[in-house]
C-alpha cells in the first residue's frame, strides 16, 4: 500500500481527491481545520483513511501532522503529498488589508512549502521515489481582477513546482502542478450569476469544471506511468485559457 497525504481534504476538490485515492486503494491521510460529516463518513467506511486537525501554514503543526500521519500509515510508506489546501479572498489590492494578504500567502504558499519540505525529508531518509502535486489555478498564470494575492500565491506554487522538480529529479521524485479552471465548488459559489454565465460562455466546453474532471489527473500523476513527468503545470479548464 502507498500512503498519500492530501491537505484540505474535508470539502471541495480536496474531499474529491481523498475519495478518489481511497477508491484507488491508496492509504490516505488528510487534514483540515474542522472535522465534518464527510470526514466522519469516510472514517467509518475506510480503515485506510485518517484525518488530523491542522492549521495549514503553521510549520510546527505541519511537521507534527506528517509525523503522526506516517506513524498511523505504518507500513504504507509515504508515496505522495497533494498540496490542495487553500483559501481565496477577493478584493481590489489597493484596499485589500495587508493582514488578509499575509494570511492567504501563509496558507496557500507557505503551507505548501512546509508540507513539501516535510515530504522531501521523508523521501530522502527512505531513499525512495515520491510524488508532490501542487493544486494551482489558471489564475496563477492569467490573473483575475480582485484576486491579486490569490493569483500571486498560485504563481508561487508553480514556481515551487519547477524548482523542486529540478532539485529532486535525480532521486526519482516528481513535482507537478495541476491548474484547474473555474470549478463548480464552494469556492466559486460566491461568483455572481452574471460572472458564472460569462465564464461558461467563454469556456469552449460550455460549463464550469467539476471536481471529477481533476481527480483522474491526480491519480495519473501518482501512477508509475507518470514517472517521467515533472516540473509541469497541467491545465484542466475546459479550454478557457486556450
Amino acid at each position: 500500500m502507498k500512503h498519500v497525504i492530501v491537505t484540505g481534504g474535508s470539502k471541495g476538490l480536496g474531499l474529491a481527491i481523498v475519495k478518489y485515492l481511497l477508491s484507488e486503494n491508496y492509504t490516505v491521510s488528510t487534514c483540515s481545520r474542522e472535522r465534518n460529516s464527510a470526514i466522519d463518513e469516510l472514517l467509518s467506511q475506510y480503515s485506510t483513511f485518517q484525518w488530523f486537525q491542522v492549521e495549514i501554514g503553521n510549520a510546527e503543526q505541519t511537521a507534527e501532522f506528517v509525523r503522526k500521519a506516517c506513524t498511523w500509515a505504518n507500513e504504507a510508506k509515504l508515496w505522495g503529498v497533494i498540496n490542495n489546501a487553500g483559501i481565496a479572498k477577493e478584493g481590489i489590492l489597493a484596499t485589500f488589508p495587508n493582514i488578509e494578504t499575509d494570511s492567504l500567502l501563509q496558507i496557500n504558499l507557505h503551507g505548501a512549502i512546509y508540507l513539501a519540505r516535510e515530504a522531501l525529508r521523508i523521501f530522502l531518509s527512505q531513499n525512495s521515489a515520491g510524488r508532490i502535486i501542487n493544486i494551482s489555478s489558471i489564475i496563477g498564470s492569467r490573473g483575475y481582477t480582485g484576486l491579486a494575492a490569490y493569483s500571486a500565491s498560485k504563481a508561487g506554487l508553480d514556481g515551487l513546482t519547477r524548482a523542486l522538480a529540478r532539485e529532486n529529479g535525480r532521486r526519482n521524485i516528481t513535482v507537478n502542478s495541476i491548474a484547474p479552471g473555474y470549478l463548480d465548488t464552494e469556492m466559486s459559489s460566491t461568483l455572481s450569476d452574471k460572472k458564472r454565465e460569462q465564464i461558461i460562455r467563454r469556456t469552449p466546453m460550455h460549463r464550469l469544471g467539476h471536481v471529477d474532471d481533476i481527480t483522474p489527473l491526480v491519480g495519473f500523476l501518482l501512477s508509475d506511468g507518470a514517472s517521467f513527468i515533472t516540473g509541469q503545470t497541467i491545465t484542466i479548464d475546459g479550454g478557457i485559457t486556450n
Binding site: 530522502l124 531518509s125 531513499n127 532539485e167
Partner: peptide
C-alpha cells in the same frame, strides 16, 4: 556526494 546526499545526511542525523 551531492547536495541531496548532504541533505539526506542532515535529515538522517536529526532522526
Amino acid at each position: 556526494m551531492d547536495s541531496l546526499d548532504l541533505a539526506t545526511l542532515i535529515v538522517s542525523l536529526e532522526i
